[in-house]
Structures are given as structure tokens and as C-alpha cells.
């Protein structure tokens, strides 16, 4: 791990989907095992460029996610590397038994990309807004579960996963994110990243909530409260050692997730700290369904703002 954090956080130059396409196009130059699987959302994830360059290794399966998981399993039986993308609810909820058995239980390999993480599904609304995807895939034994923070991390993780034989779920925002990490940063799967050091509490966040946690940290500092901030991009296996260290150091943990507080990062952190007396407070979607709206509206609606994190920290102190 060699992570360099930017001084100022701006909207990323690249959309996450561009990173997906460009990274796979590059990897496929020297790896003829890569096969792209889509379920009629290529225009949404913009992988048409990959398709142009590698038409024989692009399978737009059609609107049949269950079959897509099974076909991926078959490709993996033959040693190919399936990269599967669809919207998060369809990559998990819709095709969960196929993911669980044909891939997970059968110990076959695939990299599953679930896009439009949580409220970033915005105007697609409740049917397309996954607040449960991480909870579902966390229940697949041996599966690696991650939520991407920005394009730099996404590219680095894709490159690492391409060399590993395993079943992984990557939850992503499809379009722009705030850019947190400097180009060239490298990440270690299963290791959280300490972005800020403070002794009063620790905010553990993932995905878009990392930026909100950093904002909350600055706001708290103005009130003389110094908190640590951890980017816990690997939800499973979670970095229990780091959590225990910061639970001990700060005696107060607040999690921040763009997901139901049941089943996702908050739950994973609670489980990891089950033997400690430290208080864990979860900021996230409080067991509700999604709905349409701008991301800014939804952030307020589901109490996911930096101010909500600040409030949660103060309540614990």
C-alpha cells in the first residue's frame, strides 16, 4: 500500500465508468482471458470501446442477469476471467442464488461490478437504488466485497484483481466522484486507510461517504474535536486489526455508509468489534427503500451528510 491523499478534493477528471472501460481495454491487450459480460447496460457503463476492440470477448447477454451469472460460471470453468457489470440491485438481489451457488459455492471466479451505489442511482429511484447489495454479497462465503472511493483506487484494484483467482464484488458510483487519491497510489485489499489522525473518535467510511467523513472531520476540528478518519473500502474481509487499534485509541467509532445500516459497513464494523466495550454508532440508511431525487436531496433525506456524521460523533462524546 502506497497511498497519497490529495490536499484538495475536486470532482474527478474521469468518470468511474471511463476508468472501468479504459482499465479493461488496457489489461486485455496482454490478457486474452478477459471476457466482458453485460446485461443490456453497456451504454450506461460505456464499455462500447472495449466491445469495438474486443468484440469476441464482449458478451452482451441481454436482460437476463440470472443467466449471466451462470454463463460467467461456465466461462470460469474454462479458465476465462469474467468481468460482469450491471446495476447493483440486479447484480445481487436479482441474481443472488446464481451468484451464490453457480459462482460462490462452486468456487468459480468472477469480478462483479455493481454500479450506481446507493443514492447515486438518483433519478432511477427505489427500484434501482441498492441499499442492500453489500449485505447480500457479504453473506457469500469467501467472497471479497469492496466499495470504491474514487477512480484512482478503482483502477488500481481492478489491476490487482485481474491477477487473482477469486470472486469479488465491487460497488461503484458510475459517474463522477470526488477525487481523493493522487495518481499512482496503490491500495491493499483488506487494509483500511487512515486518512486523518485524531484521538477523540474514529469515523469509518466507504464510497461517497469517505468525502463526507473528511468534511465532517474538518467541521469537528473547528469545534475542537479531533477525529480519525478511515477509508474502509474493503468491507469483507474487513480490517479488524485496524478497527481494534482505533477503537482502543479513540474509544468511539462512527461508521458512515451509503447503504442500509443493516448488513453493510456498519454491521461489519460492529461484528469486528463484538469483543470490545467501545460504542459504535452507524450513520447510514435506516432500513428504508430508495426513491427518486437528486443526490444532494437524497443525502439529506437519508441523513448521510457531513453534518449528520458530525451530529453522530457529538452524540457519542
Amino acid at each position: 500500500m502506497n497511498v497519497k491523499v490529495k490536499q484538495k478534493f475536486k470532482i474527478s477528471n474521469k468518470e468511474m465508468r471511463t476508468t472501468y472501460n479504459d482499465t479493461l481495454v488496457d489489461l486485455a491487450k496482454t490478457d486474452d482471458k478477459i471476457v466482458l459480460l453485460e446485461a443490456d447496460l453497456m451504454r450506461a457503463i460505456k464499455t462500447n470501446d472495449f466491445q469495438k476492440k474486443y468484440p469476441n470477448r464482449t458478451l452482451n447477454i441481454g436482460i437476463m442477469e440470472q443467466n449471466m451469472m451462470g454463463v460467467a460460471a461456465g466461462l470460469s470453468v474454462r479458465g476465462l476471467k469474467p468481468y460482469i457489470h450491471t446495476f447493483g440491485p440486479f447484480a445481487t438481489r436479482r441474481s443472488f442464488d446464481q451468484l451464490f451457488l453457480s459462482l460462490g459455492y462452486a468456487d468459480l471466479n468472477a469480478i462483479i461490478i455493481g454500479s450506481d451505489a446507493g443514492i447515486s442511482a438518483s433519478h432511477n429511484g427505489g427500484t434501482h437504488m441498492p441499499f442492500e447489495d453489500l449485505g447480500l454479497v457479504r453473506l457469500v462465503p469467501n467472497m471479497t466485497v469492496m466499495e470504491m472511493t474514487d477512480p484512482v483506487m478503482f483502477e488500481n484494484i481492478l489491476r490487482q484483481l485481474n491477477d487473482q483467482k477469486q470472486l469479488s464484488y465491487l460497488r461503484i458510483v458510475r459517474k463522477h466522484m470526488l477525487s481523493i487519491y493522487q495518481e499512482g497510489s496503490t491500495f491493499e485489499i483488506g487494509k483500511g486507510i487512515v486518512l486523518r489522525e485524531g484521538k477523540d473518535a474514529t469515523i469509518v467510511a466507504a464510497g461517497i461517504m469517505v468525502a463526507n467523513a473528511l468534511k465532517a472531520q474538518a467541521l469537528l476540528q473547528e469545534d475542537g474535536i479531533n477525529v480519525s478518519v478511515i477509508d474502509m473500502f474493503t468491507i469483507k474481509p474487513i480490517d479488524q486489526a485496524l478497527l481494534l487499534e482505533y477503537a482502543d485509541k479513540t474509544q468511539c467509532i462512527v461508521t458512515a455508509e451509503n447503504h442500509n445500516i443493516i448488513g453493510g459497513l456498519g454491521s461489519a464494523v460492529l461484528e469486528a468489534l463484538e469483543t470490545t466495550p467501545v460504542t459504535v454508532k452507524r450513520v447510514g440508511v435506516k432500513d428504508r427503500f430508495g426513491q427518486v431525487g437528486t443526490q444532494a436531496f437524497l443525502e439529506k433525506e437519508y441523513e448521510l451528510t457531513a453534518e449528520d456524521i458530525v451530529k453522530a460523533v457529538k452524540e457519542q462524546l
Partner: peptide, 10 residues
């Protein structure tokens, strides 16, 4: 059957 089709496609 999906897995079989996947093997055949591979």
C-alpha cells in the same frame, strides 16, 4: 444449463 452454455461459449 446456463453454466453449460457458458462452457460452450468459452
Amino acid at each position: 444449463i446456463s453454466a453449460a452454455a457458458g462452457i460452450a461459449k468459452a
